[in-house]
Design a protein around this nucleic acid. Structure first.
Length: 281
RNA sequence: UUCUCACAGGA
C-alpha cells in the first residue's frame, strides 16, 4: 500500500491525476485497500490539477461509502470549495469539524479558514479567525500571518497589512518572499510605486531572493498607474538577473502597455514572449 | 506517503 501511495502521489505531483486515478483503481483490483492517505493523495492530485469539482465529487463519494476521513481530507475539501467560490460550504465544514469529536481543526484548518474569508472579501472575519486561534491555544505560524497580510494587500489596505507584518515580527517570525510580495501588492493596489519599490528592496535587504512573482507584482504596480516605461525597466532588470519571465509577466506587461496607451509597442512584448519560449494562453 | 500563504488577464 505504501508503494501504491507513493506512486499515486508521484503522479499527483506531476499533475497527472488521470493516471493517479487509474493506479488507484488498479490498486483495488490487486486487492489492496486504499486507506485515508490514498484518498487524500487522490483528492490532492485532483486539486493540483485544477479539477476542483471532481475532487468535491470524489469527497461526496467517499462520504456515501463511509470511507474514513481525517483532518487532511477536510482541509483539502475546504480548499477545493473555496476555489470554486463555495465559501459558505467551506466554512460549514469548519464548524462541523469544531463540533466533532474526531477530526478537530488543526493549524492548517484555521489557516485555510482565514484564507477562505480573505478570498471572499471578509477580511475582518479572517482577522477574527486569527484571534480565535490564539484564544484557543493555537500558535499562528508564518502562513497564518501571510494569509492575513495577503488579504489586506489584495484590497490595497497597506496600513492594515503593515500592522499584521509587525504582529508577525513580534511573534518571532521572519517575513519571507511571500510576505514581501504581498506588501508590494498592497502598495501597488493603492498606487504607490515608490513604497512598492521599497518593499521589493526589503527582499534582498533580508538576504532573500526575489522571484518571478515578486517581479510580476512590481511590474503590475507600474501597470496600475499607467507607467509603461517603468514596467519595462523592471522587466529588463528581471531578465538581466536571470529570472525567467512567465505568462503572467507577459500578460501584465501587455496590460501595462494598453493602460499606458502604447498599444503600438505590444509586438515588442510578444517578441519577448517568443524569445523566452513562453506559452501564451 | 497526503492538507494551508504571494503576482496578471478573462468571464
Amino acid at each position: 500500500r505504501q508503494s501504491y501511495n507513493n506512486l499515486i502521489s508521484a503522479y499527483g505531483n506531476s499533475g497527472r491525476w488521470e493516471e493517479a486515478l487509474q493506479l488507484c483503481r488498479k490498486m483495488m483490483d490487486d486487492g489492496v485497500a486504499p486507506d485515508v492517505v490514498t484518498h487524500n493523495i487522490m483528492l490532492s492530485a485532483l486539486k493540483d490539477g485544477g479539477e476542483y469539482e471532481k475532487a468535491i465529487s470524489y469527497f461526496y463519494d467517499m462520504e456515501s461509502r463511509n470511507f474514513p476521513m481525517d483532518v487532511f481530507t477536510y482541509n483539502i475539501l475546504m480548499k477545493c470549495l473555496s476555489q470554486v467560490q463555495q465559501y459558505g460550504k467551506a466554512i460549514q465544514i469548519f464548524y462541523k469539524m469544531r463540533s466533532s469529536n474526531d477530526c478537530k481543526p488543526n493549524l492548517v484548518t484555521f489557516n485555510t479558514v482565514m484564507h477562505v474569508y480573505g478570498a471572499c472579501g471578509r477580511i475582518s472575519d479572517s482577522k477574527r479567525t486569527l484571534e480565535m486561534m490564539l484564544a484557543e491555544g493555537f500558535v499562528p505560524d508564518m502562513v497564518s500571518y501571510n494569509t492575513l497580510i495577503g488579504a489586506y494587500s489584495s484590497a490595497g489596505l497597506h496600513e492594515e497589512a503593515m500592522n499584521v507584518l509587525n504582529l508577525m515580527k513580534e511573534a518571532g517570525h521572519r517575513p519571507n518572499v511571500l510576505t514581501y510580495t504581498s506588501l508590494i501588492n498592497a502598495y501597488g493596489k493603492s498606487r504607490q510605486p515608490e513604497k512598492a519599490e521599497q518593499m521589493f528592496g526589503m527582499i534582498r535587504r533580508h538576504s532573500l531572493k526575489p522571484n518571478v512573482v515578486s517581479y510580476n507584482a512590481l511590474i503590475n504596480t507600474y501597470s496600475l498607474v499607467g507607467d509603461f516605461a517603468n514596467a519595462m525597466r523592471i522587466y529588463n532588470e528581471m531578465t538581466t538577473t536571470k529570472i525567467r519571465p512567465n505568462s503572467v509577466t507577459i500578460c501584465t506587461l501587455l496590460t501595462a502597455c494598453s493602460r499606458g496607451g502604447h498599444v503600438e509597442k505590444a509586438h515588442i512584448i510578444l517578441a519577448e514572449a517568443a524569445s523566452h519560449s513562453i506559452e501564451l494562453n
